[in-house]
Design a protein around this nucleic acid. Structure first.
Lengths: 155, 155
DNA sequence: TTGTGTGCAAAATGTTTGCAAATCA
DNA sequence: TGATTTGCAAACATTTTGCACACAA
């Protein structure tokens, strides 16, 4: 899905929910979809303020759940205290794992189709039905360890 | 490993690290190992104060990392803001997944031996070496949905 | 017009830290 | 003795909320 299409989906989602299409919400959307990597609420505030300097921290925090609910954004919690967000370009399969590089702090999204099977297997033994599942790997950079430089640092 | 053995391991760990064996630290240990389910720092403070009412919140927060480092306690972050802890009775394999029941808020620890394979597979594609991995499933109680009562609520 | 959305600042939450007094080795 | 540990309260970091004003429908 292209960014204009996503923007349109966002507007439609707001309208259909009886929410208003405000400049701030659009600025936050634009800021989010201009990002290549994962970002925090605070970073998104900075980005959004470049587009519209009237955007406040409160509005960012109030808009993020809306964008998450509309499946335009994916929320990622890697246990660092702050939440990360990521534009959800595709349909929005939840069968995605994260690999977090401890050296460059980058988060990689990796397809993990077997997660659903695992969730079902393990939950059914407990008499539970899985709702969500998450798989996260934290790892160290091989190249950095061997050569002293992380190839991804540069890019 | 029995509780007395674990207690002994804790004392040895402290001494060997040049840390002191204080009443507060022992009270916190005893409180932690008396728990059946996962607990938070705040809950542990309450439990420890029953044993020794001089225990403060700060000491609990300062002791938890020590007990985690000594592999007597396992830290579990399920993305709810607060961290949970759990006595690590066995050797301490990190190949454990958590199933969190959204209805009774209980956390179940489940062996997940394939996680290591997965971490290696996915990380190597990125030129990374896995350090830790976590797999968490959130689920709903079947019995509660069908009969209106959660069998685990009672116990 | 009017009720939703906004910015601001204060509150809430979970955790960490500075410091003087207490205590273990 | 003397350095480590403690309790207290203040500091922190992130997120949430109350309220009066602004603005989209």
């Amino acid at each position: 899905m292209s960014i204009p299409a996503a923007r349109d989906k966002f507007r439609k989602f707001l309208t259909q929910k009886g929410l208003r299409v405000t400049n701030q919400r659009l600025a936050i959307f634009d800021a989010a979809f201009a990002q290549k990597n994962h970002f925090t609420a605070e970073q998104l505030l900075d980005y959004a303020r470049v587009i519209d300097d009237s955007v406040s921290r409160a509005t960012v925090y109030r808009t993020l759940p809306i964008m998450t609910e509309s499946v335009l954004l994916r929320e990622v919690d890697i246990g660092t205290g702050e939440k990360f967000y990521h534009p959800n370009q595709e349909g929005g399969s939840s069968q995605v794992a994260q690999v977090v590089c401890l050296d460059c702090d980058r988060i990689f999204e990796i397809s993990a189709p077997f997660m659903e099977w695992y969730g079902n297997t393990v939950s059914s033994k407990l008499g539970l039905t899985p709702v969500t599942q998450r798989l996260q790997v934290s790892a160290r950079c091989d190249t950095l360890r061997m050569t002293g430089t992380c190839p991804r640092r540069a890019s």
